[in-house]
């Protein structure tokens, strides 16, 4: 079980994550929803420690993740794999090497430096690719793949870490609907079959409802909703996304707001030049 206690992250004077406390059960599939800038991404990154908390505790068993350093921190990161919106594969390496990279935390210096992997590791990598149905692409270069395929390679890379937990930060925000469904199906399957805890940040309210038995809503760095999908009624959606959004369009709230902000910024630009 992962216990987060009064976790804070401040950037300058703004609080990205503001006093978040939450328990995540082993083997759960939790969706975190909220607008852009609600603190979802920062929360996930703090769990992996890509971002350091300003204060608060992250407890995995009796280990305080927030204070880990060096080898202990790397060991924790190996156990909690991350999936990114932009897939973050090494573009010029082939698919199977991108999956083998997931083993780097377990290896000593010299073989890592030479990128030499054992037969057992290669077999594991191929099995991970089979789990996400793209073993036939193993020898292709990563940058020749479509977005959906790249995200599945990223999931295979996460699997090769043999993690206890997968943190997925907007895994489907850059994908077409069909690829998005495949990626979410894959994550759900892994969660069910392997009992790996999955915490996934989502813009898409429908995806969260479909795939997650527990949904956490964030707004302004705080948790404002925590419950099952059937508790997520219109009032709850308004609490998470704001009053200008209905339950049906909730999924697009962040996006349309972003467009509006960008349009306003563009309108401002000539004025700034004039000054």
């Amino acid at each position: 079980m992962l216990q987060i206690v009064d976790l804070n992250k401040r950037f300058g004077t703004t609080a990205a994550v503001d006093g978040v406390s939450i328990d995540i059960a082993e083997g759960a599939m939790v969706g975190i929803i909220g607008r852009s800038g609600a603190g979802k991404s920062t929360l996930l990154r703090m769990i992996n420690r890509l971002a350091d908390p300003s204060s608060g505790r992250i407890l995995a068993g009796d280990v305080d993740v927030a204070s880990l350093k060096g080898a202990a921190l790397r060991k924790w990161r190996a156990q909690c794999a991350m999936i990114f919106q932009q897939f973050n594969l090494v573009k010029r390496l082939d698919v199977v090497t991108n999956v083998l990279v997931g083993r780097l935390a377990y290896r000593s210096l010299v073989p890592s430096l030479l990128m030499q992997f054992t037969a057992a590791e290669r077999a594991l990598a191929i099995r991970c690719l089979e789990r996400v149905d793209i073993a036939e692409l193993a020898l292709q270069r990563a940058d020749t793949l479509s977005g959906g395929q790249q995200q599945r390679v990223a999931i295979a890379r996460a699997l090769s870490q043999q993690p206890r937990m997968i943190l997925a930060d907007e895994p489907i925000a850059s994908l077409d609907p069909r690829s998005a469904r495949m990626v979410m199906d894959t994550l759900a399957r892994i969660n069910r079959a392997d009992g790996i805890t999955v915490v996934v940040n989502l813009h898409d309210l429908d995806a969260a409802r479909t795939y997650c038995k527990r949904i956490v809503g964030m707004r302004g760095g705080k948790i404002v909703f925590d419950g099952t999908p059937d508790l997520l009624d219109a009032a709850a959606v308004r609490t998470i996304y704001g009053d200008d959004v209905s339950a049906e369009t909730g999924a697009d709230a962040g996006f349309s707001r972003l467009v509006a902000t960008e349009a306003a910024a563009r309108a401002d630009a000539p004025r700034q030049l004039a000054n």
């Binding site: 190996a78 594969l89 090494v90 780097l104 430096l113």
Partner: peptide, 24 residues
């Protein structure tokens, strides 16, 4: 981005250089 992904995996500095920086 791939360098960040490798750090998130728990790779050390040398591994990040060998597996993400040098290929790029």
């Amino acid at each position: 981005n791939p360098q960040e992904a490798l750090r998130a995996i728990g790779a050390g500095r040398v591994s990040v250089i060998a597996a993400a920086v040098l290929p790029a």
